[in-house]
Simulated scan of single mutants.
Amino acid sequence: MIRKYAHVAVVAPIKGLLTYLVPQELSHVSAGNVVNVPLGKRKCRGIVFSITDQAPETEFEIKSLDSIDPEYEAHSIALRLKWIQWLAEYYFHPIGLVADLVLPPLSKGKKNAARKRSPIPEFPPESPFALNEEQETVYNAIAADTGFQTHLLYGVTGSGKTEVYLHLFEKTLKEGKTGLFLLPEISLTPQLVNRFAKRFGSKIALLHSQLTDRERTQFWWEMIQGEKQILIGARSALFCPVPNLGLIVVDEEHESSFKQEEKLKYHGRDVAIMLAKEVNCPIILGSATPSFESWLNASKGKFKLHRMTKRVGDIQLPEIKIIDLKASAARSKELKLPFWMSE
C-alpha cells in the first residue's frame, strides 16, 4: 500500500509547511481541506496545501492527520493556496496564520442565528443611470478586457466613477461571475451601501470591522455558497475566498488605510492586484488623487490609465488660485486678518 503525506499550514507561528501522514480512513483528503492535526502536546487547525506519496527524509516519527473538518469544501479554499503562499513569502509572515484568515470567525452552525436588523437595507429596484460620453468611453475600454489587467481610473471628484463601477459589476453578474468592491473603512458609509442595495438588492454582502462575528460569518457563507454575488468591504474582505471572481474594484486606492500595520503587515491594494492576477480577472484602481506608485506604473504602461476630467452634469470645478503670502501680508495687516487669509 502506498503511503500518502500531507503538507499542512498549521495555525501557529511556524514559517513553513509541516508534513503529516495521511491515515487510511482519511485517504480522500485533498489540497484545500481544513484539517485537525497534532502539534506538540496540543491539537491544532491547519489547511492542506498538497498531497504527495514521497516520504520525507527525517529521523523523527511522522504524526498522522487527526481529522478533516467537514464544514469547509476543499475546492473554494484550494483556489487561494498559491495566493496565500505568495502573501506569506512576500510579507514574511507564518503561512498558517495567513491561511487562517481565509476562514470565517465562527463555525457554520452559529451563522443562522437571527439578526435583529440586517446591515443591508431593502429598497425597490432601481434602473441603471445612463452614462455620459466620458463615462461610456471608460466603461467600454475597461469592459473590453476580460482577463487580468490593472486599470487606473483617474477621475476628478464628482465625475461619476461609482456609476461606472456599478455598470461594470452589472456586466460581471450577467456573465455569471462575482465581484469584489474594496474601499477604505471610513468610506464604507450607509449612503454607498444604499446605492449598491438599490441597484443590486439582495445580491450584495458586507465584510468590515463594524459587523459582529456572527454577521461576518453569515455573509462569508452567503458568498461561498453563491447566495450573494457582490462582496463590499474593507481590506479584510480580500481574504474571503469568493468563487468565480470576475471583477475587483479598489476605490480610493491612494488611501493609507489600505495598509495593515499589525500582525500580517500588507498593502490591500497590492494584495488585491496579485489576487486579480491569480484568478485572471480585471482590477480597477480608482482615485481622484492617485498614489505615486500607481501613477508611475500607469506612466510605464504596466497599468492602463483612464481619465475622467469632468463632473457629472457639467458642474464646474472650483477655481484654484496660488496666493503669494509675502505679497499679501501687508494687505492682510490692513484688513486686520491673519497673514494667511486673502480677500
Rank of each mutant, 00 (worst) to 15 (best):
R3V: 10
R3K: 15
Y5P: 09
V10C: 08
V11S: 06
P13S: 01
I14M: 05
G16M: 00
G16E: 10
Q24A: 15
L26Y: 00
N33M: 00
V34H: 03
R42Y: 11
I47P: 11
I47E: 11
F49P: 03
S50C: 03
T52C: 06
D53V: 07
E57G: 08
E57F: 05
E57P: 02
T58Y: 05
K63S: 14
L65R: 07
E71P: 02
A74F: 04
H75P: 07
H75N: 11
S76T: 09
I77L: 02
L79Q: 13
R80Q: 13
R80T: 13
L81D: 01
L81W: 01
Y90M: 08
Y91V: 02
F92R: 15
F92Q: 14
I95C: 01
V98S: 00
A99W: 05
V102E: 05
L103W: 12
P104E: 04
P105M: 12
N112H: 15
A113G: 11
A114G: 07
R115F: 14
I120P: 01
F123V: 02
F123T: 06
E133G: 14
E134K: 13
V138A: 12
T146P: 11
F148W: 09
G155D: 03
V156H: 10
S159A: 08
K161P: 05
E163F: 00
V164W: 01
H167Y: 00
L168Y: 05
K174T: 06
T178K: 10
T178G: 04
G179P: 07
F181H: 08
L183T: 13
P184M: 02
E185A: 13
I186C: 08
T189M: 08
Q191W: 03
Q191V: 09
L192G: 09
N194R: 08
F196L: 12
G201I: 01
I204D: 01
A205D: 07
A205Y: 04
L207W: 13
Q210A: 08
L211C: 07
L211Q: 08
D213A: 10
R214G: 07
R216Y: 11
T217R: 01
T217Q: 02
Q218W: 12
F219S: 05
W221D: 10
M223R: 09
G226D: 05
I232L: 14
I232D: 08
R235Q: 02
S236Q: 11
F239V: 03
C240T: 15
P241D: 12
N244Y: 02
N244P: 00
N244M: 01
N244H: 04
G246Y: 02
V249Y: 03
V250I: 12
E252P: 04
E253W: 13
S257F: 07
Q260P: 08
G268Y: 03
D270M: 05
A272S: 13
A272M: 04
A272R: 04
K277S: 11
E278D: 13
V279Q: 09
N280P: 01
I284F: 04
I284R: 04
L285G: 03
P290V: 00
S291E: 07
F292K: 13
E293A: 11
L296E: 10
N297Y: 09
G301E: 06
K302Y: 14
F303M: 02
R307T: 14
K310V: 07
G313F: 03
I315L: 15
Q316E: 13
L317K: 13
P318E: 03
K321N: 15
I322F: 07
I323M: 14
K326G: 12
S328P: 00
E334A: 14
K336N: 15
K336A: 15
W340T: 12
M341P: 00
S342A: 12
E343I: 09
